[in-house]
Design a protein around this nucleic acid. Structure first.
Lengths: 204, 204
DNA sequence: AACAATATTAATCAAATGATTAAAATATTT
DNA sequence: AAATATTTTAATCATTTGATTAATATTGTT
């Protein structure tokens, strides 16, 4: 009697719409997405979208919050861990995010564009969730390299991990490599970033 | 009798529209931009936009090509130079792009999003303009580190330079730093990236 | 089976949006 | 100054788009 029934192979209508919304929103962004695109992708009547989710805006809210969590959920706890070394944290973050982004390649551009469009909306969510500057990682970096702002190393780590995903279309154009080759390279980076990060830490 | 007159302080109408289009398009992207926004920003009647540029699409074309050139015009020649070392190239690219992006912080997200939406459109433009894989830089990297694909170092250099601009809104949220502090840090990177890059090259 | 609740559809609405038109204003040429 | 070309405006169009409605179908309950 609730909203849906558990259907054997198929998803519930509500879930089909959400799944389609995830796909279309992350691919094209909020503004370029038509509710009709989502309906078509989900294989449902347009009116159903509003029946279940009230509005494009409300549906988007659900998707963006999910994706935000996917992009930011892991990093806080890893960096907060008092018991691991800098190197271990970098390795853990690299591996986790490269894997996550290989499955969700549009995620960074989507989330970063949305944050840029609407920074205030996520202020609370993120501030409570991800306390980078008080983290063990931050303190460890400050202790190891008192001469360089730890934020630089945060930039570096995230840049080395995330940039290939954002820059992939451009880099394919200017280098001519295939998508598969790019993915192979990105996979190699799981091990390389750890080494490079260490090298940057030990710089004179 | 041509399109415009050279007016003392003010810009010609055509240039006012283009300038407004640059601002609004790069800030909000193609889909989220209303031609009325551009008209208002330019302080002109909406019909004038179509009078001078025929359509939103055509106006956008002009802007995106300009911005593409701004983002990609410099890198090819610098990396092609047979007479400079790896380190000199990295220094030159870092300094040039950090300066350029400090004046055009929305540029990378704007161009990268557009390339992602429409890769084929820019294929010709970029392929002829930016031959990375045949560049002196590429060969120098391959000679210095035969064990690592030179593309990794391209990823690294561009990631270290560009990512802070794309990730700035996010990083401000998760670290709480001000925009000014972020800009100060980014400025520091002009010198740091050179050092870090060298450290990554000399990794065991 | 009868009834009620829930889900789905086709048709339609109202507002937003890119574009055009016809007239008015301004500048340029003769 | 008259005539012509160019620029600018207000009004309007046609389409797209998010959303609603009223009717129909399906599912669940008694």
């Amino acid at each position: 009697m609730a909203k849906k029934k558990d259907i054997p192979g198929d998803l519930s209508t509500e879930e089909k719409i959400k799944e389609a919304a995830r796909k279309v929103f992350t691919q094209k962004g909020y503004a370029a997405t038509r509710t009709r695109d989502i309906a078509e992708e989900a294989g449902i009547n347009l009116a159903l979208l509003n029946y279940y989710f009230r509005s494009k805006e409300k549906l988007f809210e659900i998707v963006i919050m999910e994706k935000m969590q996917l992009l930011l959920g892991k990093i806080g706890p890893v960096l907060a861990n008092e018991k691991t070394t800098i190197e271990e944290k970098v390795a853990e973050v690299s591996e986790h995010y490269i894997n996550t982004l290989l499955s969700n390649p549009d995620l960074p551009l989507f989330v970063l564009a949305e944050i840029k469009n609407n920074p205030d909306k996520f202020a609370n969510l993120i501030k409570t969730k991800t306390k980078i500057v008080d983290s063990a990682f931050f303190k460890q970096l400050a202790a190891r390299r008192p001469d360089i702002d730890p934020l630089h190393f945060i930039f570096n780590m995230l840049g080395l991990i995330i940039f290939p995903f954002i820059g992939k279309p451009l880099l394919q154009l200017i280098t001519g490599i295939t998508s598969e080759r790019a993915i192979t390279l990105i996979n190699e980076r799981k091990k390389l970033i750890k080494i490079w990060f260490q090298a940057m830490l030990e710089t004179p």
